[in-house]
């Protein structure tokens, strides 16, 4: 290969395949985010539990997840868990690993968001005899969500950019697809460039979307009907 020779015909040929793999990437990110938000909230709420044992255990679980590489966790879930009788598809494993890993990060975001709610709001809720569930659902979380949006969005975009790690467990996402196309055709320039561009486009769109959500979100929070 001599110098830079971009082959447009080849580009159009491989684009549909890469786009179909992009669907897998986006699906993994979407499901991973939902799972991460749920896990993050669960971790954050457990860290505020009355029981010291629960608080400390969850602290160490979160610390453990954050301090070990995502790839190790992916491998562990995919190759070790079957030995305990739990085997999942690459996509399910990926969603689970991403959700758990980013859930640990998000729990810190949620925790500081919840901590940001004034003490008076908790006291008024207690004086009105609201249950702890009502207090979180109606009073605390609706006010805490807006400040959490930017950091949560950043983590979701970061998660999106880490989905190529799932290629290590044979998930056919964008990067894996580009590698296969490249090795079959002995041309890597177009597929990898396309993948890079798609990551760029998706990230920018997502960042803009998150900014819009934050901007439109009512300043004081929202109240359920």
């Amino acid at each position: 290969m001599n110098g830079f020779d971009w082959d447009w015909a080849f580009t159009w040929d491989v684009l549909p395949m890469i786009l179909s793999a992009a669907k897998v990437t986006l699906l993994a990110t979407l499901l991973g985010s939902i799972f991460a938000i749920i896990m993050g909230l669960v971790f954050a709420l457990l860290r505020r539990s009355k029981s010291r044992l629960t608080r400390t255990s969850v602290y160490w679980i979160v610390e453990f997840i954050r301090s070990t590489p995502l790839l190790v966790q992916i491998f562990f879930l995919y190759y070790v868990m079957p030995e305990f009788g739990i085997s999942m598809s690459p996509l399910a494993t990926g969603v689970f690993a991403l959700g758990l890993h980013y859930g640990a990060y998000l729990s810190e975001v949620f925790r500081s968001g919840i901590d940001g709610i004034e003490k008076g709001q908790w006291e008024a809720s207690r004086a009105l005899n609201l249950s702890i569930i009502d207090t979180y659902r109606d009073i605390v979380l609706p006010q805490a969500i807006r400040p959490m949006i930017p950091a949560t969005g950043n983590y979701i975009i970061a998660m999106f950019k880490e989905t190529p790690q799932l290629s290590a467990i044979t998930l056919l996402e964008m990067l894996q697809m580009a590698k296969i196309i490249g090795s079959e055709n002995f041309r890597y320039l177009e597929p990898f460039t396309l993948v890079g561009l798609l990551y760029l486009v998706f990230s920018i769109v997502a960042a803009y979307g998150i900014y819009q959500i934050e901007k439109r979100f009512p300043k004081e929070g929202f109240s359920l009907k």
Binding site: E123, A124, A127, L128, N129, D134, P142, G221, F222, S223
Partner: peptide
């Protein structure tokens, strides 16, 4: 349930309308 409290700094719920501030506890509790 025997007790009610009014606070120095009001502690109203800023994300709820005035009406909703008042109906929240009777409805939920």
């Amino acid at each position: 349930n025997h007790l009610g409290m009014v606070f120095q700094h009001f502690n109203l719920f800023p994300h709820m309308t005035v009406k909703r501030n008042i109906t929240e506890a009777p409805m939920r509790v």
